[in-house]
């Protein structure tokens, strides 16, 4: 029972973090790294961070469309 619970727990986090969109996991790491790197360059940061997220969303969506 404990093994099953641990497996379900692991599966939940795998699906949550990676799932069928591993690109979002890597983009999230990139966003965090960039935010720390630009913490003294706020003007650049407030433009770059949303652009990274929107770029990732667009690419991921286009990838699905290309597959269809």
């Amino acid at each position: 029972m404990i093994r099953r619970a641990l497996r379900s727990f692991g599966e939940f986090w795998w699906n949550f973090l990676i799932g069928d969109t591993p690109e979002f996991f890597f983009v999230t790491i990139v966003v965090v790294v960039v935010a720390y790197a630009l913490h003294r360059e706020r003007t650049v940061g407030v433009i770059v961070l949303p652009v990274i997220v929107l770029g990732a969303l667009a690419l991921s969506t286009l990838r699905v469309r290309a597959r269809k």
Binding site: F24, L57, S60
Partner: peptide
């Protein structure tokens, strides 16, 4: 980071 990850998933599905 967790909210962003979750949000991108929801938004992608919406798109």
């Amino acid at each position: 980071a967790m909210l962003l990850l979750l949000g991108m998933g929801w938004l992608r599905k919406a798109w």
